[in-house]
Design a protein around this nucleic acid. Sequence first.
DNA 1: GTCGGAGTTGACAATCATTCTCACTTCATC
DNA 2: GATGAAGTGAGAATGATTGTCAACTCCGAC
Lengths: 137, 137
Amino acid sequence: MTSTEKANAEKSSLRPTRQRLAVMEAMASFGDFRSAQDIHELLGERGEQVGLATVYRTLQRLADAGEVDVLRTEDGEAIYRRCSDSHHHHLVCRSCGATVEVEGPTVERWTSSIAAEHGYADVSHALEIFGTCPRCR
Amino acid sequence: MTSTEKANAEKSSLRPTRQRLAVMEAMASFGDFRSAQDIHELLGERGEQVGLATVYRTLQRLADAGEVDVLRTEDGEAIYRRCSDSHHHHLVCRSCGATVEVEGPTVERWTSSIAAEHGYADVSHALEIFGTCPRCR
DNA sequence: GTCGGAGTTGACAATCATTCTCACTTCATC
DNA sequence: GATGAAGTGAGAATGATTGTCAACTCCGAC
Ligand SMILES: [Zn+2]
Ligand SMILES: [Zn+2]
Ligand SMILES: [Zn+2]
Ligand SMILES: [Zn+2]
């Protein structure tokens, strides 16, 4: 089973419960990266009671399905953001977290050619850009 | 105080204790990324008794001084590797961990221009490439 | 409609990397 | 050989994440 088939299989067995819908709705309501605990808290404020473990589980499912992107803060905490489904990278403000999705063939080509040059196959990559956004300047 | 000055100040107050030398020596003895606990264990096997907390502290110092690079495994664990001091990225084998340092102006230019395009200042970036190395194929 | 089983949930416990605490040691300096 | 700052280590504490498991919800088969 390829990873795509597996993802589809998992997705197809997902029931659209109140909790999952609430998490997905919450994810749609902000544009920066937030931790599972942040999202759990946000849900609480909105009056949507969802268990913390369920928030973690749902975010994992969404991440596996590629519907959210996951990053790690400097101290290792996982943070999540709803993202477009096509391959892209992130330009993140170090101060306020404002995030822009960026893409371009340049890096894609560069990483492939570097990997090929060293005989590495089955290549993937992770790239994030950090800076201070115009509003935080 | 710039970050360089700070690093130097911190470095200058460092005493070359048996423990620190042992950690640095251990770091020089492998070429892939290892966790603090791995390194602690490695030290134990070599007969160098160093407390786990000290290993953590030393790795942090080295990382702050830019003498080792830090990555995060998929499950958030920090892994360390002794690296050249110039800016570079990593091509890592997903199977055996074999790591190659790579660099090139292409990505550097691309990230800068993307950031500038969106008005982000004070830019840095993180890029890792993952694949299967020739020996693991 | 109701039965049954798979999928789901949440309170709580458990895990586990990392950090903290603090009494003790080392080392340079005087 | 006294002093104080830097460093250490055993063990406790922290805190994000995951595991457990009994209760609950769907939904299709009957
Ligand atoms: Zn994204
Ligand atoms: Zn890319
Ligand atoms: Zn490196
Ligand atoms: Zn670079």
